Simulated scan of single mutants.
Amino acid sequence: MSHISSLYLFSKETDAVETVRGFKFQELKTLETWVLNKVNGVEEVIYCDYEEDIFQRDLSEFKATFRQFKLYSSKKFSFSSLEVKKAIAHFFMLFIKGDYPL
């Protein structure tokens, strides 16, 4: 029988640090977009972590922009990775959703 010091309740391999780092990067990119819009006089509504990582709407032009960010500090980029496949599938679902005129 193992000693109590070997007990790992709720222990599993997680990438919580990478997830938080990715979300902070997303927040900074959203802030950067907002500042650039203000400087350049662009009137858009900007959403962070809604529909996509950054979702921009220009209601006067009926324009919607979706941006997805991935922060890979410890992994090599690959189109066959689960994260990239999920991002492409999510974008496709937004594209066919039809809520945003082209």
Rank of each mutant, 00 (worst) to 15 (best):
V42E: 07
C48N: 10
E32Q: 03
R57E: 13
F91T: 02
L82M: 14
I88V: 14
K86T: 06
S78H: 09
G41M: 01
E44C: 02
I88K: 12
Q26L: 09
S80H: 13
F62Q: 11
S6L: 12
S11A: 14
I54C: 01
G22S: 08
F92N: 02
T30C: 06
L28D: 09
D58A: 02
G98L: 04
F66Q: 04
S80C: 03
K29W: 10
K24Y: 15
F77L: 06
L94K: 01
V84D: 01
A64E: 08
C48M: 11
F92T: 04
K38G: 00
I4E: 14
Y8F: 13
A89Y: 14
T30S: 06
V35K: 14
F69V: 00
E52P: 02
L28K: 14
R21L: 08
I54K: 04
E51P: 03
K63V: 11
K63S: 03
S11L: 14
V35H: 08
K63L: 09
C48T: 06
E44L: 05
P101D: 01
D15T: 13
R57C: 07
V17L: 09
A64P: 01
F69A: 00
L9Q: 05
S5F: 11
C48Y: 10
K38H: 07
I96N: 05
F79H: 07
Y72S: 04
